[in-house]
């Protein structure tokens, strides 16, 4: 599948949280969860078991979530979750066991309500760089701004070792200094 086809249907996004949720405080994003099931059908057996055993505990632990229980005859069970940002999610729980439904409810409770998309990056920061983004002028000598171009000084190769001519001149200078020193001590 090409990226274009993928984006046509599923899209992609960066990691995000509604209003920086979880930084300093947490606001429950799940607002309402509806348990739809049948009282007689076998496909709803796990759902009926969940409602008997787990639902009261879930509602008690999550006072911010409205829990609806909606029996309907001869239709397969499902979970419908509605979120603070207007997002909705529907999950079919046909022939799921009680343990599966516990996991699905936990999944819906922790969601932000944004659609599930491919993440282009698995990390996000509001402060990408403390030092500031790179520019071409970073670690450059500011003197190059006021130079006249073309500039021989900036262009010429920096010698890594002294040349034979340079060495000869240095030896000559040393010799001259020594002779001067000898001359001054004798006089």
């Amino acid at each position: 599948m090409t990226t274009k086809t993928w984006n046509l249907f599923w899209g992609s996004n960066f990691v995000r949280a509604p209003l920086q949720n979880g930084v300093g405080r947490y606001v429950q994003q799940l607002q309402r969860i509806t348990f739809k099931f049948c009282k007689t059908h076998g496909g709803s057996k796990g759902m009926r078991e969940y409602i008997e055993k787990e639902l009261i505990g879930f509602a008690r632990e999550n006072p911010g979530v409205v829990v609806y229980v909606k029996p309907r005859r001869h239709r397969s069970p499902c979970l419908k979750a509605e979120y603070l940002n207007g997002g909705e999610e529907y999950i079919s729980t046909h022939v799921n066991t009680c343990e599966d439904i516990v996991k699905w409810v936990e999944y819906l409770r922790g969601r932000s309500g944004y659609p599930v998309e491919r993440l282009r990056k698995y990390h996000h920061t509001d402060y990408p760089s403390i030092q500031g983004p790179w520019t071409p002028w970073i670690h450059r000598h500011p003197g190059i701004n006021i130079k006249e171009y073309p500039c021989e000084e900036l262009s010429a190769v920096q010698p890594t070792e002294i040349s034979a001519t340079q060495k000869l001149l240095e030896l000559y200078e040393q010799q001259k200094q020594q002779q001067e020193g000898v001359g001054s001590t004798t006089s």
């Binding site: 071409p136 701004n145 171009y149 900036l154 262009s155 010429a156 190769v157 010698p159």
Partner: peptide, 11 residues
């Protein structure tokens, strides 16, 4: 022009 590249060989 705002910068100059260094040559590779001494002239």
């Amino acid at each position: 022009v705002s910068a100059q590249m260094r040559q590779l060989r001494p002239v």
